Amino acid sequence: MTSTDPRSGPAGRPLLRRFDRRLQGLISAMHPDERTRPGYARLAKEMREATGGSISGTYLWELATGKKRNVTLEQLDVLAQYFGVPPEYFLSDEVAGRIDAQLRLAISLRDTRVRNLALRADGLSPEVLDALLAMVNEARKFQRLSPVEDT
């Protein structure tokens, strides 16, 4: 195989490239503030306590940074159980896409102002809701934020 062969190395293996990003995303979603985010040893301890499964802090760091890519089924199960996702999240683009959309919503709803905006919109007519969505979309453009896909 040559280096341009899509099957060679991690660059040619999309599943391997995505695993570490998905794991990092789950850690960030659970602990959004990097300043208070526990280290990998603490996360591993929390995982053991929550699931009864075993994964070391070092190995968790290696998985999250892409240094190691040979996760066992037991470790995959521990990760999935701890983060509340199906094991397929790490393996399937379709499943990951659905769960990532739910995670984005959950993360957005952590902000009290976003929650209050959503609660105040409840009960408004469809026409008023469409007008509010148009205003929010324009505000996102004005602040040079990426568009949000409708769910």
Rank of each mutant, 00 (worst) to 15 (best):
M1I: 13
S3M: 07
T4R: 10
D5W: 02
D5G: 12
P6M: 13
R7L: 15
A11M: 13
G12K: 07
G12L: 09
P14H: 09
L15F: 07
L16E: 15
R18P: 02
R18N: 15
R22L: 03
L23M: 01
G25W: 09
G25N: 11
I27P: 03
H31A: 11
P32G: 01
P32F: 00
D33L: 09
T36Q: 12
R37C: 03
G39N: 13
A41M: 11
R42W: 00
L43E: 15
E46T: 03
M47D: 11
A50P: 03
A50G: 05
A50S: 06
T51P: 03
T51S: 05
T51G: 07
G52H: 11
G52R: 08
G53K: 04
G53N: 04
G53Y: 00
S56D: 02
G57H: 00
T58K: 04
T58N: 13
E62N: 09
L63P: 02
A64V: 02
T65C: 08
T65L: 04
K68C: 09
E74W: 00
L76C: 04
V78W: 01
L79K: 01
L79V: 04
A80G: 03
Q81I: 00
Y82H: 11
G84L: 05
G84C: 00
V85F: 08
P86H: 05
P86E: 12
P86T: 13
P87Y: 02
E88V: 00
F90R: 01
S92C: 06
E94G: 04
E94S: 06
A96C: 01
A96M: 02
A96D: 11
R98I: 01
I99D: 11
I99K: 11
A101M: 08
A101V: 01
Q102V: 11
L103Q: 14
L103T: 10
L103R: 14
R104P: 00
A106P: 10
I107S: 07
I107C: 10
V114C: 07
R115T: 10
N116R: 14
R120D: 15
R120S: 14
R120L: 13
D122V: 08
D122K: 02
G123M: 05
E127P: 00
L129H: 07
L129T: 05
L129S: 01
D130A: 15
A131C: 09
L133C: 06
L133Y: 06
A134V: 05
M135K: 05
N137Q: 08
E138W: 08
R140N: 10
K141N: 06
R144A: 06
L145Y: 00
P147L: 10
P147H: 07
E149T: 14
E149S: 02
D150V: 13
